[in-house]
């Protein structure tokens, strides 16, 4: 039986993971780009990213681009696997109606 993942199921974190798994495996997304895509505030996004990072589902790469700090976010292989399992569990609930 497939299990739902409580960390990922939170609506903002679910959408963050949906964005990250849609990208190519070698891609990472800029913090501001992700914030605009999700239409959330900096603080809100930062808090949810921390939770996902602590769980090992995402990687945050902090670099300097033209002397300005940038954070690039990508899903880890574990994050991708867990997200796919979560989606499969959601689909199973719909099929078992």
């Amino acid at each position: 039986m497939l299990n739902l993942n409580e960390t990922i199921h939170q609506p903002v974190r679910l959408r963050i993971m949906a964005v990250l798994v849609t990208l190519e495996p070698t891609d990472e997304v800029d913090f501001t780009y992700l914030r605009d895509l999700l239409e959330v505030t900096d603080g809100n996004l930062g808090a949810h990213l921390r939770k996902l990072e602590e769980a090992g589902y995402i990687r945050i790469n902090k670099v300097f681009v033209e002397r300005k700090p940038h954070s690039y976010i990508s899903a880890t292989p574990e994050g991708c696997r867990v997200f796919k399992e979560h989606v499969a569990a959601l689909e199973a609930i719909l099929q078992n109606k």
């Binding site: 609506p11 679910l14 959408r15 949906a18 849609t22 990208l23 895509l37 959601l90 609930i93």
Partner: peptide, 17 residues
């Protein structure tokens, strides 16, 4: 709730692409 969550995922995938 499952239906809503899947719809949110699909909408986000579409928006990202």
């Amino acid at each position: 709730e499952a239906e809503e969550a899947l719809a949110a995922i699909q909408a986000m995938v579409k928006k990202t692409r």
